[in-house]
Simulated scan of single mutants.
Amino acid sequence: MQEKWPEGLPVAQVRIARPTDKLPEVERFYCQGLGLRKLGGFENHKGYDGIMLGLPGFPYHLEFTQHPHGSPCPAPSKDNLLVLYVPDAQRINRVAERLAHMGYPEVEPENQYWKDKGATTIEDPDGWRLVLMPTAGIG
């Protein structure tokens, strides 16, 4: 039985946002490398440039912003992860190979759980980690 969304929190969309000092590289990594789509963007909105990435028709988005006087943007730790669950290892391998060819090879995860479950960990241009987890490894 699938639970309904809580009535006290009527969320229509989820967007995860973070700054970057490398907006063009981040866009290339997540769009050309991973396969997300650029859903929108903006330039010089109160000094900020940004892009929204995701999959058309789905209410889950990533937003990346850049400001010339913004805070430094290194990743806080090797365990700050964006985990995407992918149906099969073959698809994960294709994405990982494409990213490696672009200069983003697989890295050793901080938490061995991910490797033990067959996941692939890759650092984006800012050092934030993306985990591609096979759905067969859920549990």
Rank of each mutant, 00 (worst) to 15 (best):
Q2L: 15
Q2K: 15
K4V: 05
W5S: 12
G8C: 10
L9W: 10
L9E: 00
P10A: 13
P10Q: 13
V11D: 00
R15C: 11
R15Y: 00
R15M: 10
I16K: 00
R18C: 10
R18T: 14
R18K: 09
P19V: 07
T20G: 09
D21N: 06
K22G: 04
P24K: 03
V26H: 02
E27V: 15
E27M: 09
R28T: 10
R28W: 02
R28F: 03
F29H: 00
F29Y: 01
Y30Q: 12
G33E: 06
L34P: 00
R37F: 14
K38N: 01
L39P: 03
L39I: 08
L39E: 04
G40Q: 02
G41N: 06
F42C: 00
N44V: 09
H45L: 15
Y48L: 14
Y48T: 01
Y48V: 11
Y48N: 14
G50V: 07
G50S: 01
G54H: 09
G57H: 06
G57Y: 05
G57A: 00
G57S: 03
F58H: 12
E63V: 10
F64A: 04
T65Q: 09
T65I: 15
P68Y: 10
H69D: 13
G70T: 12
S71I: 15
S71R: 15
P72T: 11
A75W: 06
P76E: 11
S77T: 15
S77E: 08
S77A: 15
L81H: 06
L82Q: 05
L82A: 07
V83T: 12
L84I: 14
Y85N: 10
Y85L: 06
V86F: 05
V86H: 02
D88W: 10
D88F: 12
Q90H: 05
I92P: 09
R94L: 08
E97V: 00
E97T: 01
A100Y: 08
H101I: 04
H101Y: 07
M102Q: 12
G103K: 15
G103N: 13
P105R: 13
P105G: 09
E106N: 02
P109G: 00
P109K: 03
Q112W: 04
Q112I: 05
Y113I: 12
K117S: 08
G118F: 04
A119S: 10
I122E: 00
I122G: 08
I122L: 05
E123H: 03
E123D: 14
D124Q: 04
P125K: 03
P125W: 06
D126K: 03
W128F: 03
L130W: 01
L132P: 07
P134R: 12
P134C: 06
P134H: 11
A136C: 08
I138F: 13
I138V: 11
